[in-house]
Amino acid sequence: MSTETFNLKKSGNFLARYGTFTALILITLAFGLFVPKFASFSNIMTLLVQISMLSIVASGLTAVFVVGELDISTGAVVSLGGILGAYLMNNQIPPAAAIVATLLVGVVFGVVNGFIVGYLRIPALLGTFGTSVIALGLNFWAGNGSSIRISKEVTSEFFMSLGSGTFVGIPIPFVVALMVFIFFLFLLEHTKWGLRMYSVGGNQEAATNFGINNRRMKFTAFVFCGLTAAIAGLLLSSRLGAGSPIAGDAYTLDAIAAVYVGVSMFREGEPHLFGSVLGVLIFGILVNGMRLMGVGYEVQSILRGIFILGAVAIAGNRAQLRVKLF
């Protein structure tokens, strides 16, 4: 008696479900056909690197969205990761130690966010805003308001290769992004913790009834998010050869937008890692293609903004559906 009604309901989601996917294919095809260099090997390599950082940030942010929260400090933490990496390299700290220290700082920010939002129950927007101000302050302080250029003489080749090297022909940032992606895919989709996180985001009351510790789940998600932001920051500074206090700024919005774009794809109105990565791909391809076409930065940012608004309008309306379901 049920399957019939089920199919009926499912088909109604077609546009929102496959709209994003169709958009991705259309954009790729259009660029591939009309922008000569787009499909070249070197451009694809560049594209892979370009999407890697955003993909890493978006993966972590997806976990935060899954538990029904929000993190607007990611951009500032990305910058912080970069600045810190650059600073430590310039001070001739062994690369391994520098990397660990930077990642730890990312984790610390995640812990603070998670504690404030998860345990103190302060609205995520407020709490993560506060930490982002602190991170920004640290960024500007460290470089006295400007970027920290990594001096070629003192830095290790290993660190520089993080951003621009390759591993069996594949750019290292992309390898890292892939690893992060796989990690979160397992965490969110194939472990009991992932299932619990989804429950917390889906129906907190039910989750409590199921004996799940809502606070701990939220805390965990924020910690992972802080960690991924720091990873992205390290790669970014290695690639740019400098740590910039604002290089990560754009990631806050882009990652949120990417996750939102993905919301319409899977689990019907829920954040999902595949969806987020799809959103990242769309952004990456859009930006890359527009650059190749010689579209100026300013027009890019306008077009991207309009695209995000459109995606969020479709996804946002659907995401609201889930709240009043039962």
């Binding site: 889906g202 129906n203 989750a207 019907e268 889930r322 379901l325 039962f326």
Partner: peptide, 9 residues
């Protein structure tokens, strides 16, 4: 009465 399930699971 409100059943307490997670709707999208």
């Amino acid at each position: 009465q409100e059943l307490n399930l997670v709707p999208f699971l």
